[in-house]
């Protein structure tokens, strides 16, 4: 099964709608609730990152019987130093993002914690690709 969701940069009122749809699908497939929670927390963190930092993005989800693979791709400023961005507490979030309750520099480490496989690639002034794989069994 494959699904595609658009993510609008800067629009916090819609942030989370893609992750919410994925949650509904995984629930319908009777996936273990603990795995659903891990997966949607990592997707939501990644989705909020696109809304907070990028101009636009998309979430592509592939579900096969034993795993869910998700690619979150955006057009945006990119991440100059991914190792630095992975450090807890490091953030480049704007005051607006912080006012929304995010931007504490915990998103990427939390994605890592909640995913079985994580790959991040980025090009400055082009965009970022976050690939998350979680096993369903």
């Amino acid at each position: 099964m494959e699904f595609r969701f658009e993510i609008e940069g800067g629009n916090f009122s819609k942030a989370g709608t893609a992750s919410s749809e994925v949650k509904k699908i995984l629930k319908q497939l009777n996936v273990d609730p603990k795995i659903i929670k891990r997966t949607v927390v990592s997707l939501y963190e990644a989705e909020v990152n696109v809304v907070a930092h990028a101009y636009e993005g998309e979430m592509n989800v592939e579900i096969i019987p034993d795993k869910v693979s998700v690619t979150i791709q955006d057009k945006g400023p990119g991440i100059p130093d991914i190792d630095q961005a992975m450090q807890e507490g490091y953030s480049t979030a704007t005051p607006k993002v912080r006012e929304m309750g995010f931007g504490a520099g915990m998103g990427l480490p939390n994605i890592k914690k909640n995913s079985d496989q994580l790959n991040i690639s980025s090009k400055v002034n082009v965009g970022t690709i976050v690939e998350i794989v979680n096993y369903l069994k």
Partner: peptide
């Protein structure tokens, strides 16, 4: 804000 609800949903 809405993200408080979204966070709780996840």
């Amino acid at each position: 804000n809405l993200q408080t609800i979204r966070t709780s949903e996840m």
